[in-house]
Design a protein around this nucleic acid. Structure first.
Lengths: 261, 261
DNA sequence: TAATGCATTTCGGAA
DNA sequence: TTCCGAAGTGCATTA
């Protein structure tokens, strides 16, 4: 394997300044094979072919290649990479004979697609042998909202009794199948975010399953809903239940020590 | 502004090996302010608070900060960053007094949220003054599929006539409002990808708007659909129309010269 | 600014 | 493997 021109001080990081095409191909291939992450500051063109197809003309970008086959091409703005290959791809880096330039190709099947990064110039290249066993822990998800509702169905309506969580039907899964104080079946669809028309649709689909078996109610539960969604519910005989206590707002969160600007 | 320890050869790239906390804070702030992208290989902890809240324990990650306020924290696998701030955030980098460690905080309001990266160790830091004016050009999108259908409605059904594209209703926009050979109104919902139950829902919502005005048909147009979606359509009196010519498959695309492995 | 729907959505879980 | 739905979805578009 090829050695970096400037051995980095940082543990697990090897840096190459303006590497030639062969070095790029060599380092990228070796690093990915050995489980390291590669970052490169390059001028490049990108071509994508697969679910759609597209072309990105020459420009300076940050390219990230991960050992799981992920490839990201980032422009200087935006959260989303302009081109990419998700986990599970195969990344092959070679040198285009015609131009003596590195070419990074990521592919996968199912769906069959392909990203080709034609590197015009490599300003810098970093191999990062990252050790990361940590898993992200999150709270405030819809799953937690489900737990809360299962424990406190009366927050939705007095006398409501949960019969089943995640009940499967021939048209999909119902969040909660419940029964109200009168004994009428209630289908409950829970959303962590503001309810949308699609959420309304979803509830309507589930409720329609039970309509021919007699009286059924449908509850759309969310922190809020647009006027249009509330109207759609009314028109369709469904009920929207606002649970504003699930409104997320970081101002309620505890500020940390480093929170001083 | 602080100078890099090792001046990079690459145009527009400045590299810092194992920079101390003050250098990190200085370089990140200056670079972002001046429109450059910053990449750092670090050991860090991350805390997020906003739409949900979460914590990522210590580990090695790639951190990318963009001048538009985007912040990305990447673990060594996956397409998606484990933590992030989308475009429009404000990134403030400082030095935690207690530990003499860099702390990168990205915030935004609407929704109010906050990412804090507590950097335990900085293996390397790169400032990249990327010049990129190119825009990604894409084809094969749903918009193009619409154009095709508008030009060739007979591909959906003999005698079908498009009356209106993107017709607005009180429950959202209909892809196509059309009339069949018999003069019956037809609501058409087009999907570029395999049709899902949500797509079926969407069509059903639109069709329901016209049901009280008389006979209406609903067409769900997509390259394919699951068995459950087809059944849902049948049960609801809607029709699924397969347009397999829009099945995306890169094997049909033209292989490029560099496509040699 | 809010609302609506597409997206090369990605991702995880279950059958 | 496919199917289904959540996601801190992001993002453009339009009112």
């Amino acid at each position: 394997m090829c050695r970096p021109r400037d051995r980095a001080d940082g543990m697990g990081v090897e840096r190459y300044e303006s590497p030639d095409a062969e070095t790029v191909a060599d380092v990228v291939s070796t690093a990915l094979h050995e489980g390291a992450v590669v970052t490169a500051e390059v001028a490049c063109e990108v071509e994508y072919d697969g679910r759609t197809s597209g072309y990105l003309g020459p420009g300076d970008r940050l390219v990230v290649a991960k050992p799981d086959g992920t490839l990201l091409v980032h422009q200087p703005t935006k959260h989303k990479p302009v081109n990419w290959m998700p986990t599970g791809g195969t990344i092959v880096t070679s040198v285009a004979e015609t131009a003596d330039e590195p070419v990074i190709v990521a592919r996968r099947s199912n769906p069959r697609e392909r990203v080709e990064v034609r590197v015009r110039e490599t300003y810098g290249l970093t191999r990062f042998d990252a050790a990361d066993a940590a898993e992200y822990e999150e709270s405030g998800t819809e799953a937690e909202m489900h737990e809360y509702i299962e424990a406190h169905p009366e927050e939705l309506e007095d006398g409501l009794r949960i019969v089943e969580h995640e009940r499967e039907t021939k048209y999909g899964f119902i969040d909660f199948y419940a029964v109200d104080a009168e004994g009428t079946p209630v289908v409950v669809e829970v959303k962590r975010v503001q309810a949308t028309l699609n959420h309304f649709d979803q509830l309507k689909r589930y409720v329609s399953l039970y309509e021919d078996t007699g009286d059924v109610r449908g509850l759309l539960v969310a922190p809020s809903a647009s006027e249009r969604v509330e109207r759609a519910c009314r028109d369709a005989g469904l009920e929207f239940v606002a649970l504003p206590e699930f409104e997320t707002d970081a101002t309620l969160g505890n500020a940390t020590l480093t929170d001083f600007d």
